[in-house]
């Protein structure tokens, strides 16, 4: 009965107990592998497919679930693996109800973290805003473009508690824009006002046409 197995991940070797998952071994080796669905003691994982690693022969296994019982080697950070994770994550986001301005989890959301790690666009600035939903600037009557602007700029505006001007570009997913404009109206903002402010940075942004289209549609609902 062997008491220790050597796992090589991305060239780094760690010694672990037999039965350890590759994900745990990677953590020990200081290699971060993205994951979403494994909850020890509750769910066995292997659903989100983000943690997939490759054997040198090219076979894919979810690292959260694959237990090593003898010396094995894996690749966890090849470009094709990251590409697969990115596409996979985009698929997940596709049907996610993105409404960060109203979401209780916005300050501790793994989807936001993953979108930064995997360089996936499409989540609004609200996800990065330090203010909780009930302290939103919009509630104070200040016109912040966070709901319809792309997150990821790392600018000072948010950190210092100021409103967002949308410099990183518009969100183009229509369902998010619909919810956002509906919310603007509910809070008493005029859609034209929002577009007017957005135009400052977005007048030549390709996605602006979509933003205007959805804005008109929501405004037209009377």
């Amino acid at each position: 009965m062997i008491s220790v197995v050597k796992v090589k991940i991305d060239g780094k070797v760690v010694e672990v107990e037999p039965g350890t998952t590759v994900l745990e071994a990677a953590e020990k080796a200081g290699i971060e592998i993205p994951r979403l669905c494994v909850v020890p003691g509750l769910y066995e994982g292997s659903s989100c497919r983000l943690c997939l690693v490759k054997t040198p022969a090219g076979r894919l296994f979810p690292s959260c679930n694959y237990r090593v019982y003898r010396d094995e080697e894996f690749l966890a950070s090849t470009p094709d693996l990251w590409e697969m994770r990115r596409v996979n994550f985009e698929l997940l986001l596709k049907f996610h109800r993105i409404e960060c301005w109203a979401c209780e989890r916005k300050s501790s959301c793994s989807l936001v973290e993953l979108s930064k790690e995997l360089l996936v666009d499409g989540i609004p600035v609200c996800s990065e805003c330090p203010l909780p939903p009930n302290e939103c600037l919009l509630l104070k009557g200040e016109l912040c473009l966070g709901m319809i602007a792309q997150s990821g700029c790392n600018a000072e505006c948010l950190v210092s508690g100021g409103e967002c001007w949308g410099c990183r570009g518009p969100i183009t997913r229509e369902d998010i824009l619909e919810r956002a404009f509906t919310h603007y109206r509910e809070l008493g903002f005029d859609v034209k006002e929002v577009i007017g402010k957005a135009e400052i940075y977005w007048n030549s942004a390709p996605g602006f046409a979509t933003v205007k289209k959805v804005a008109e549609r929501v405004a037209g609902r009377g």
């Binding site: 989100c48 996979n88 698929l91």
Partner: peptide, 12 residues
């Protein structure tokens, strides 16, 4: 419906 690629990817 268990995994993302099949559940969402096929619909896309």
């Amino acid at each position: 419906g268990k995994c993302i690629p099949c559940r969402v990817g096929l619909r896309v």
